[in-house]
Design a protein around this nucleic acid. Structure first.
Length: 305
DNA sequence: TGCCCCCTGCAG
DNA sequence: CTGCAGGGGGCA
């Protein structure tokens, strides 16, 4: 599902629900979806839910007892042995879902067909149970996504985030940085280039088309041919589209639901994605769909010249 | 820098 | 049946 706004939508929802809860058990239904040792999560409390690019992190309390597997090791004998901290990571890839269920999912809302779907279902890969009896379901039809248990030290060593470009909604993301990073791909169509997570992190196929539309740039434009005005417009288009995505609760094409199982409505707002053959909301011309870098790309030939 | 692949399921 | 789907790693 999930591009930055969808993952952020889940993060916002999950933060409200699971912070302070203690993990009682983890049921791994699909071992391929789970990396690391699920037993290490037992008894830990949720401290924080964060996001980097399209990765969601759940920070957990350190274990009180130090590792005892090797009591004679140098580390174990140190007075301040590294705390056995653990972080739970999620990547939802194309069809992942993270749905929290405390038995009250439908209260106060209008249940959608998705919400009414019983959990667990045939796409449920992992189930987390908290000590208050509530559950968190990781569903993933295509099984591209993963759940991973890591220590922050492993995280550092593996440099999982080392190749990621700037967070587009944070202060350090300027049009000049966008330009510099994009210029590593002078020959690439700009829409394909902004999908490179090293250029800017969090953009996916929906928001790439939308950002180009907002900037008035033809998605086929080679990065090397762009002028500063266009880099500025694209920067603004990226920020604007992503913020709109969060505002509308994410984009639901087929699978995306938030932490409570609700769809997102960004695609009602969207100008071009999925609007193939429909009139442009701005000028009335017909929206076109083409393939770029192997992926569907939508644009208005009149507005994006 | 462009393919193929990981998978499942739905629309045409 | 074929093609396509919010991602991205690995390979020539």
């Amino acid at each position: 599902m999930p591009e930055l706004p969808e993952v952020e939508t889940i993060r916002l929802g999950l933060s409200k629900k699971i912070i302070g809860l203690k993990i009682k058990g983890v049921e791994v239904i699909q071992p391929k979806s789970f990396l690391g040792d699920s037993k290490r999560l037992q008894g830990r409390k949720v401290l924080k839910v964060w996001r980097r690019a399209k990765i969601l992190g759940v920070e957990l309390t350190p274990s009180l007892r130090a590792k005892r597997s090797n009591p004679n090791s140098e580390i174990a004998s140190l007075p301040s042995a590294p705390r056995n901290d653990v972080v739970l990571l999620f990547h939802l890839k194309m069809t992942g879902q993270l749905i929290y269920d405390n038995g009250k999912r439908f209260i106060g809302g209008h249940p959608t067909p998705d919400m009414l779907k019983a959990l667990p279902n045939s796409h449920t890969r992992v189930i987390f149970t908290f000590s208050n009896g509530s559950k968190l379901y990781f569903n993933d039809q295509r099984r591209f996504g993963w759940v991973k248990v890591m220590q922050s030290e492993e995280l550092r060593v593996q440099n999982l985030f080392g190749r990621l470009g700037p967070e587009p909604l944070e202060k350090g993301f300027t049009w000049q940085i966008l330009k510099n990073n994009l210029l590593r791909h002078k020959n690439m169509p700009v829409k394909v280039a902004i999908l490179d997570q090293a250029v800017v992190s969090g953009i996916g196929n929906i928001y790439a088309s939308e950002a180009c539309f907002d900037a008035g740039i033809d998605p086929r434009t080679k990065v090397g041919q762009m002028i500063d005005e266009q880099f500025k417009a694209l920067h603004s288009g990226i920020v604007k589209s992503l913020k709109a995505g969060i505002k509308y609760g994410g984009a639901t094409r087929a699978h995306f639901v938030d932490a409570e199982g609700r769809k997102g409505y960004f695609l009602d707002y969207a100008y071009v994605y999925g609007k193939d053959k429909k009139p442009c909301k701005v000028c009335g011309s017909e929206i076109k769909k083409i393939q770029l870098g192997g992926r569907g790309t939508f644009f208005c030939p009149a507005c994006q010249g």
